[in-house]
Simulated scan of single mutants.
Amino acid sequence: MKVKFFFRKKEPQFNSIEELFDAVSRKLSVIISVESITMPYGKISFKNIFKNIKYTRANSGKLNHITGHINYVTLGLKGKTILTIHDVGSTLNGNKIKFFLMKVFWYWIPALSVKKITVISEFSKKELVSIIPFAKDKIKVVYNPVKEELKYQPKEFNASCPKILLIGTKSNKNLENTIESLKEISCELHIIGKLAKEQLLLLEKLEINYFNQFFISYEEIIDAYQNCDLLCFASTYEGFGMPIIEAQAIGRPVITSNMGAMKEVAGESACLVDPNSISSIKEGVEKLIDDAEYRTNIIHLGLKNVERFKIDKITNDYLNIYKEVIEAK
């Protein structure tokens, strides 16, 4: 068996899909032949879309797996294809014309041409079924794996001035509410992601002590998990919420949202808060700081939760899908 992975063009600010399938690829390569194909063009334009489709046609195999965010390249693939869709909400923002075009060319046409579609959470599956109900039998949930590089590393919690890690600065990451919730709490923020002017002004206005990094390597992200005291990830929308299980694998307590994929991924292993309520986020942070017994239990539950996302299990899920697609007439 041989599978060809098709990746979007790599950009310095986006690496989650590449990191995810690099881990899966390394595990699969012990069992089957795996080849990775990266698109030559990144910026979305009619010219680049056409060139990427032409490129995939020249490089397609008998079994293809589009790893995410280039759904349209299904039009260039000749063999049997699996498509992974990471989230729906972020691609359907905008006016009615854009909404219609995205539904047709990003979801409907690809859904008709592929054999299987994988999504990364039950939440994402529900969203996707509402858009392509005709293809619901093709959709299967395969969770994101936690990478083996993320090893448990205990750390003495700094209750007097904890280092709080915030990952992501896009609007769904809810940074403004999170910053507001921390204005009366003695802490140091480590923010990963390029800050907008408004976010910088808010940090300055509230006199928040912070450290910012962006366009960093995965090794630096691991360092950030290891050096923090807790992760605050109170997003308003996620297709999965990878930082939740990454921080838990290191052994850090997690605060995340009580909705959508984040609640699904974390379950009872994190402090769940209302992301739309500044007071709820604040109360969650204070509870983790002040209640050592609660914090220890959250860490313990987090380590147990990570077992659901071990790379061997996720790799086996993909392998079973590949076998099913190959054997199907």
Rank of each mutant, 00 (worst) to 15 (best):
residue 8 R to K: 15
residue 217 S to E: 15
residue 74 T to P: 05
residue 209 N to I: 09
residue 302 G to D: 04
residue 217 S to N: 13
residue 265 V to E: 02
residue 308 R to T: 07
residue 12 P to F: 06
residue 23 A to N: 14
residue 206 L to S: 12
residue 182 L to R: 03
residue 312 D to A: 14
residue 179 I to Y: 00
residue 50 F to P: 07
residue 207 E to R: 15
residue 25 S to D: 07
residue 286 E to N: 12
residue 102 M to A: 10
residue 215 F to D: 15
residue 58 A to E: 15
residue 280 S to R: 02
residue 114 V to Q: 01
residue 254 V to S: 04
residue 267 G to F: 00
residue 58 A to F: 11
residue 37 I to E: 08
residue 164 I to F: 02
residue 202 L to A: 08
residue 235 S to W: 01
residue 133 P to W: 04
residue 75 L to E: 04
residue 42 G to E: 05
residue 181 S to I: 02
residue 266 A to W: 02
residue 222 I to S: 06
residue 55 Y to L: 09
residue 54 K to H: 12
residue 89 G to M: 09
residue 46 F to Y: 10
residue 79 G to H: 04
residue 77 L to C: 02
residue 231 L to E: 01
residue 227 N to W: 07
residue 282 K to R: 15
residue 41 Y to E: 09
residue 184 E to A: 09
residue 40 P to N: 08
residue 288 L to K: 00
residue 228 C to D: 02
residue 321 I to M: 00
residue 254 V to P: 02
residue 240 F to W: 03
residue 180 E to A: 14
residue 292 A to N: 12
residue 181 S to C: 03
residue 40 P to T: 07
residue 183 K to F: 06
residue 303 L to S: 10
residue 317 D to N: 15
residue 8 R to Y: 13
residue 284 G to R: 01
residue 79 G to D: 02
residue 29 S to P: 08
residue 287 K to F: 02
residue 128 L to D: 04
residue 191 I to K: 00
residue 105 F to G: 10
residue 175 L to W: 04
residue 284 G to F: 03
residue 179 I to K: 00
residue 195 L to E: 08
residue 271 C to K: 12
residue 53 I to G: 07
residue 328 A to C: 12
residue 292 A to P: 08
residue 99 F to Y: 15
residue 21 F to R: 04
residue 100 F to V: 14
residue 48 N to A: 05
residue 204 E to C: 09
residue 74 T to G: 07
residue 69 H to E: 15
residue 294 Y to A: 05
residue 196 A to C: 08
residue 139 I to K: 03
residue 276 N to A: 13
residue 75 L to Q: 06
residue 290 D to Q: 14
residue 178 T to I: 09
residue 27 K to Q: 13
residue 147 K to R: 14
residue 230 L to R: 00
residue 280 S to L: 03
residue 133 P to C: 00
residue 166 L to D: 02
residue 204 E to D: 14
residue 30 V to F: 14
residue 327 E to W: 09
residue 16 S to M: 06
residue 60 S to Q: 08
residue 259 M to F: 10
residue 236 T to A: 05
residue 165 L to W: 00
residue 119 V to H: 00
residue 186 S to P: 10
residue 268 E to W: 05
residue 177 N to C: 07
residue 197 K to M: 11
residue 68 G to L: 05
residue 183 K to H: 08
residue 48 N to M: 03
residue 284 G to E: 04
residue 113 S to P: 08
residue 210 Y to I: 04
residue 156 E to R: 11
residue 86 H to I: 00
residue 302 G to V: 03
residue 62 K to M: 11
residue 74 T to R: 05
residue 89 G to R: 08
residue 2 K to A: 11
residue 279 S to A: 13
residue 200 L to C: 11
residue 200 L to Y: 10
residue 245 I to W: 01
residue 206 L to R: 15
residue 205 K to P: 07
residue 57 R to Y: 14
residue 225 Y to K: 08
residue 198 E to F: 10
residue 281 I to P: 00
residue 310 K to A: 11
residue 166 L to H: 06
residue 226 Q to T: 12
residue 252 R to F: 03
residue 316 N to A: 12
residue 202 L to H: 06
residue 171 S to V: 13
